[in-house]
């Protein structure tokens, strides 16, 4: 079926894979803002993509058109792109910026892990956003969940809250479980956004100082 398409195959040394999604697990645009910032500040370069075919119901998550004076200028489709960064004096990173798929999660995650295995990814972190009953006047809460007991100490040392939750999941949790089955350690960070400050679309308010490079 679908395969990852490569623009190049960079030489990376046991990179850390950081994953973010737009869609349901992007409350407060926490995930997309974080990944966008990382891509810009790490000067990350796009090198691979997961094709969108078979993963999205476009009639429920519609592509965006830019039409000016009657002429169709641009059509923005959901994108699932991998970027790499080899920062000096630091470890290598692969950043994945995508949209949570509507269909075929298993296949989607197989493609993610196929790439992760190809590049000998050393650790996997996903970034999500959730609405919560918290005031914006206090320091934001960041919680974590992980798929291996050995990660608990790391998470606790970083001062993160340990998630208590029973309910519907996003693809983040599916990724953690798939990683566990493959013997890979993975953890998920969740930024808690105040329930009363909601954004209506995937493209939210950004101050002018931060540009958005959407490729």
């Amino acid at each position: 079926m679908d395969q990852v398409t490569y623009l190049e195959k960079p030489n990376l040394s046991n990179p850390t894979l950081v994953i973010g999604f737009e869609g349901w697990p992007n409350a407060g645009e926490v995930s997309s803002s974080t990944l966008q910032y990382l891509i810009e500040k790490l000067d990350a370069k796009k090198f691979a993509s997961i094709p969108i075919e078979n993963f999205y119901q476009l009639s429920s998550s519609r592509p965006v058109a830019v039409i000016k004076e009657g002429r169709l200028r641009e059509l923005k489709l959901p994108g699932n792109h991998f970027y790499y960064s080899k920062p000096p004096f630091s470890k290598d990173f692969i950043l994945f910026q995508g949209v949570e798929p509507h269909f075929h999660w298993s296949l989607f995650v197989d493609l993610l892990f196929g790439l992760a295995e190809k590049f000998d990814v050393s650790q996997i972190l996903t970034i999500g956003g959730t609405y919560d009953y918290i005031p914006h006047t206090y320091p934001p809460m960041v919680s974590a969940l992980f798929n291996h007991e050995n990660l608990k100490e790391k998470v606790t040392r970083a001062g993160l809250g340990l998630t208590e939750y029973t309910g519907p999941i996003s693809i983040h949790t599916f990724i953690l479980e798939s990683a566990r089955k493959r013997g890979l350690k993975a953890l998920s960070l969740w930024g808690h956004a105040p329930q009363y400050l909601q954004t209506k679309s995937a493209f939210g308010a950004m101050p002018p100082s931060i540009s958005r490079r959407r490729t």
Binding site: V30, I127, G129
Partner: peptide, 11 residues
């Protein structure tokens, strides 16, 4: 934005 900043610090 404030939440994303906190997430980045944790990352």
């Amino acid at each position: 934005m404030k939440v994303a900043y906190s997430v980045l610090r944790s990352l």
